[in-house]
């Protein structure tokens, strides 16, 4: 520890090592957030910014029907995406961890990351092709005679956003769950069976509780970025799939009202934080 005489050589070395990342964090994380927070308390006065402190932006953001609707919809869509992604990711992670030969696990993980080889934007466009009026899904179903005319509930609405985002975030959910499953001592499963439980019961009494840290991690990794996603709702969401990010973008760039946009961004961030913390608190017993 640094004494009163000054810093020890170790402390100095440590601080100089930390200095660069710390500066990086300040410049790229703290400063922008600080700026957004500041902006949210100012007001736009035509082309200048009025820097008197005010809560007007928050009043407007919380009072305006449109903002409330968009924020609420963003939360609901993000939650749906999270549930769909994690529920689908779990069996995949389970399969790779428990049923793939150890020597082949890395190739499986590699295959799971293949969607990341193309840009996010291109993947979203591909979903447009798949889900569209004359898209793969509709022509396929019509070719099979299952439907007579193209279904429309899969594009330009919230469903399309959920499908696209669930696909985009799948690997982020699979990997933490896989890691948690890998860490489970296999003799625990045998012990459970030895103590009289079936495989299914063993899953619910041993495997799932021990995989919970991975599930919680996956949930947060998917939920946090999804709520503020901009590209996917813009491209496949249509009017009923529009989320809060689109409104923030509109406020900043089209309506030239950065302070209101900043206030909306802060509110979105606050919702994410509140929901995430609540979720972690609910799962605290698995996270010891």
């Amino acid at each position: 520890m640094a004494g009163e005489q000054g810093l020890s050589a170790d402390s100095k070395a440590g601080l100089s090592l930390v200095a660069a990342p710390f500066a990086y964090a300040i410049v790229l994380l703290a400063l922008p957030i600080g700026a957004i927070i500041l902006f949210s308390f100012w007001t736009q006065d035509f082309i200048t910014i009025d820097t008197t402190f005010t809560l007007d932006n928050y009043r407007e953001a919380l009072g305006g029907q449109i903002y409330r609707t968009l924020l609420g919809r963003s939360v609901i869509i993000a939650l749906s995406v999270t549930v769909v992604t994690v529920v689908l990711a779990f069996p995949i992670a389970y399969f790779v961890s428990f049923h793939v030969k150890p020597s082949q696990k890395s190739i499986w993980l590699f295959l799971i990351t293949i969607p990341f080889w193309t840009s996010y934007l291109i993947r979203v466009f591909l979903w447009k092709v798949i889900l569209g009026f004359n898209g793969v899904v509709n022509s396929g179903l019509m070719g099979l005679g299952i439907i007579d005319e193209p279904v429309t509930f899969i594009l330009y609405n919230a469903n399309a956003v959920v499908i696209t985002l669930a696909h985009a975030f799948a690997p982020f959910a699979i990997l933490p769950i896989f890691v948690a499953l890998e860490k489970i001592d296999r003799s625990l499963l045998e012990a459970s069976q030895d103590l009289g439980e079936t495989r299914i019961r063993t899953f619910f009494r041993v495997t799932l509780p021990l995989a919970m840290p991975g599930v919680v991690g996956a949930t947060l990794i998917v939920f946090i970025p999804t709520i503020g996603d901009y590209v996917t709702p813009e491209l496949v969401g249509g009017p009923s799939g529009t989320m809060i990010a689109t409104m923030i973008q509109t406020q900043f760039l089209r309506l030239n009202n950065a302070p209101l946009g900043a206030a909306l961004a802060i509110l979105a961030m606050a919702s994410v934080t509140a929901i995430s913390l609540a979720f972690i608190w609910l799962n605290r017993r698995w996270l010891r």
């Binding site: 001592d185 003799s187 625990l188 045998e190 012990a191 069976q193 030895d194 103590l195 009289g196 439980e197």
Partner: peptide
Amino acid sequence: PANHRPTNMVFQSYA
């Protein structure tokens, strides 16, 4: 199966 046998085990890793 193991869960129906009148045996119980103390595992090497204790499990």
